[in-house]
Amino acid sequence: MRTTDLIPREFWRKIRDAGIDGYMVIVGLMIVITAVILALFAEFIAPYDPIQRVGPPVSPPSTQYLLGTDSIGRDVLSRLIYGTRTIMIVILISTVLSMSVGIPLGLISGYIGGKLDRLLSLIMDSIYAFPGLILAIAVAAVLGPGIYNTSISLAVVYIPTYFRMIRGHVLSLRETIFVEAARAIGAKDRRIMLKYILPNTLFIITVVFSLNVADAVLTEAGLSFLGLSVASPTPDWGFDLKNGQRYFLSGYWWPVTFPGIAIFLLALGFGLLGEGLNTILGKEEI
């Protein structure tokens, strides 16, 4: 499948015509794209090295240190920019992981049905029943800190969402006439799943993806706030948030406020994108 099939031109037309939902998507997309650019080109954008002491501790925002420095004199802005990279990498890996497990399982489970479906649904539902952050904490505690381990613990949380949404959609697609028509021309199950059913679940994958990611941003921040994510001194928003809050009461508001805003903005961006897409695509396809 080519990307032109995934993002058809009329999709953009739909966004333009969707009113408030369209704006949500556009604003969300702008925030996300900014984050991606920051993550990709952190070296060129950040004014300082994020893990070196570059000035006096807790110096307030100034022209030299736009967002001030933290308790050990590192530039808050630079740490935020590099922190974008950390969180984006975690989100990227965890998304790829949860998609590559959740989507095929949902597809097979929904299409084949029977005992396999019941077993998989039972497992997925029990995982889903856990509150996301608590499950992520449990897995992260077992695996230990590090970018990859954090990604895995997030992936475990979001596999069931993909599974359930895909499976539900496959159940209804399985009954459509064009799928029966595919059987009537003699297509094998594998072909039916990959060429007839999967492409028609793309919009749901898009929606689940963007809604999950907003949630994942918060979960990741939560994990690192608890010290279960990336090991210090790697720049990480949640970790900085936790470090910063100790000095907040002493009047040093900047080390904690800016990571907080960053987390909020990124979650908001993905959230707007997801909600908007959900309404726009949902209206079209259902």
Partner: peptide
């Protein structure tokens, strides 16, 4: 499955019997 090339079906609803995500040429070629 192999027998199916000799027996075919045309459905009532042409809106529903074609995969909306497949080019019609590909649909016929399949």
């Amino acid at each position: 499955r192999r027998l199916r090339r000799h027996m075919q079906i045309i459905y009532q609803d042409p809106y529903a019997s074609l995969n909306p995500r497949m080019k019609i040429g590909e649909s016929i070629k399949d």
